[in-house]
Every structure is written in structure tokens, then in C-alpha cells.
Amino acid sequence: MAKKSRVKSRQSAQSSAVAEGGISPRAACPCGSGKRYKACHGAPGGGAVFVARPFEGLPGECDLVALRELVPSATVPLTIKGYDDVPVLLGSLLPLAAPAMARDSGQVWAGLQVQHNYGDVSREVAAVLLDALAKVKAGESGIVGLTAAPGDGPRLQDLVTDDALTITVHEGFDWWIGDVEDKSGMEHALEHANEAAMPTARLSSVEAAYWTDTGTKEHLRWVMPEAEEDLLTALARLHVSGADVIVPGARFVGMFRAHGLLAPVWDLPVGTGAEALEEPAVAFKAALDEALADTSDLTAEVRSARAGLANRQVTIR
């Protein structure tokens, strides 16, 4: 009897943890550390904070998620409060995978594809960005990183004054040396980096949709801002009606979940290219908006499709 009581108590405690935190203690920690939640941010002292949607409230949230997780080479100029006179560039990946750089040119760069794993990507980027800005103001240059959690400092949301972001997707990483006068000796490293960058393009007709060519396949990966449950239902409605095919021959294969948002993914026929997706993406967005507004009861077929879609999600972060 006592053993059963202990088991019941342990199960009840675990259920409470899931209910309160929304994460099973045995599940992978959403911070991306590779550890179980109970051994990472779910452990006593294992993490002061975990922000599931770190870019919420920033202009271009969906694009920032894409640049963090999906896009090889892209840049975004930023205006930082109190530093209007310093050119600031937010990049997908910086040289040497640096968190931030105070450049000899007087520019400041910050990288998104850095895994500090302190629980809040926005605060991590803001911390190295401010350190790099301080270096430039002091007439110094060099790489800046974090060796400890940034604490209660400002987040990007507190620093960025731009109302909208201008995303530039690059074919490679030539922008790494755009502010360098003497480029000698950099050719080999740049060539190696460029070879690893898959061709990628951002659609201009809709927000945060990216075409990419992996060599053997082409994909459309589209980060969407809608709440997960609503988006799953809407996509299920479109799937049942056959309206989830972007272009003839395309196949909706599932979704990434990253930083609190879903990114539906389509396999495309080889040779499709980004330009051919522009008008179909607009039509799909209109159909999706209509499905999101549909409050009618779900049919058995839609429920089944929704369950299938839920099983085709891969969490990145």
C-alpha cells in the first residue's frame, strides 16, 4: 500500500510540473542544450529563466526566428537607442561564429546563430551588442561574447527603435569583408563558408517565407505568427480541402517549431525557384486567413488531419 502511495505521489508531482511549466521533466529542454528539462532549466539553479518566444514584440519577429534557425546568410541593420550614430548590423552568422564584433570600421555586428543557452536569446544578443557598442565608443575593436548569464539586463525589445526591419538575404558571406580595406588572406576562409551556404531567398509577397535549394530538393519554409493551436486547425482545414498545395507537385511535409512559432515546410519540385512561389504564396495566405477565421465545428476528417499534422512537428528551439 505504501509503495502504491509513493508511486501515486511521484506521478502527481510530475503531472504538476508539466501543468505548471508546460514541459515534462523528462523532455528535452527547449533551450536547445540537449539535456533533459529536469537536468537543465527545470533543475534547481539550472536556469534562472527560459523564454519560449524571445523575439515577441520585436518588428519582424518571424524573420528573426528564420534568421536564427533556417537562413544561412542574411543581415538586418538596426538602430539602437542611444547609439544612433553607430552602424549596427544583426547577422545570421558572423565570422568565427562570433556572438558580436566591434569592427575596425566602427561598425558593430551581432550574430543570431549563437548558442549561449542562458534561457533568453533576446537578452543574450542584447548583452553582447551593448558590450560591442561600448568597445566601439572606447575606440576599441574585437570579438565580444558571454561567459556567464547576462542577468537582468535589457533585451533587444528595450534597445531596438526600428518600426520595421529590412532583411537582406545573401548568396554567401562576402558581406563579412564588406567593411575591410585589405582583404588579402581572407579568400580561403570566405570560399569555404560560401560553399556551405545553401541558396536561399526570401519571398517578397508575404512575410517570413523562405525558399531554399539543398541540392537534391527545394523547400519553402514559412515562419508564421499565429498561435499554434489555431494554426494547426487552419492548416488541417486546408489539407482536407486540398488547398495546402502551394504549387503543382509541391507537398506539405510538416512543421518546425522554433522560439514559440511554427514554420510549415513544403517540398517543392526541383527547378521551382523562388519567383514561381510569389503569387501562389499570396493566394495561400488568403486561404489560410479564411481558415483561421472559420469557427465552425471540426469534422472527423479535419480532426484526423489535425492529429496527423501535430505528429509532423519537429522542435528546433
Rank of each mutant, 00 (worst) to 15 (best):
148 A>N: 11
237 R>D: 13
185 G>W: 04
267 D>K: 01
257 R>I: 08
241 S>K: 15
235 L>D: 04
195 E>C: 13
211 W>V: 07
283 A>H: 14
314 V>F: 12
64 L>I: 04
26 R>W: 10
180 V>S: 11
49 V>T: 15
257 R>W: 06
15 S>Y: 14
203 L>M: 09
189 A>W: 02
113 Q>E: 06
103 R>Q: 14
12 S>Q: 13
125 V>W: 00
12 S>I: 10
287 A>V: 07
167 I>K: 09
177 I>F: 01
83 Y>F: 13
193 A>F: 12
275 E>G: 06
166 T>N: 07
157 Q>N: 14
28 A>V: 11
296 S>Q: 14
159 L>C: 03
310 A>R: 11
243 A>L: 09
191 E>D: 15
4 K>I: 01
246 I>G: 04
29 C>K: 01
221 R>L: 07
217 K>L: 12
167 I>G: 06
215 G>W: 07
229 E>L: 12
186 M>G: 11
65 V>H: 06
53 R>E: 08
66 A>P: 05
138 A>F: 04
314 V>T: 14
151 G>A: 09
254 G>R: 01
64 L>F: 07
271 G>T: 05
306 R>V: 08
14 Q>W: 06
118 Y>C: 06
102 A>R: 03
213 D>L: 05
14 Q>E: 10
5 S>Y: 15
163 D>M: 08
263 A>R: 12
260 G>D: 05
250 A>G: 05
151 G>R: 06
302 V>C: 01
224 M>I: 12
281 A>F: 02
211 W>H: 14
10 R>N: 15
233 T>M: 11
120 D>Q: 01
270 V>R: 15
222 W>A: 02
268 L>K: 05
91 G>Y: 02
279 E>K: 10
72 P>G: 00
66 A>C: 01
89 L>G: 04
113 Q>D: 05
172 G>C: 02
180 V>R: 01
67 L>P: 11
200 T>W: 01
276 A>F: 00
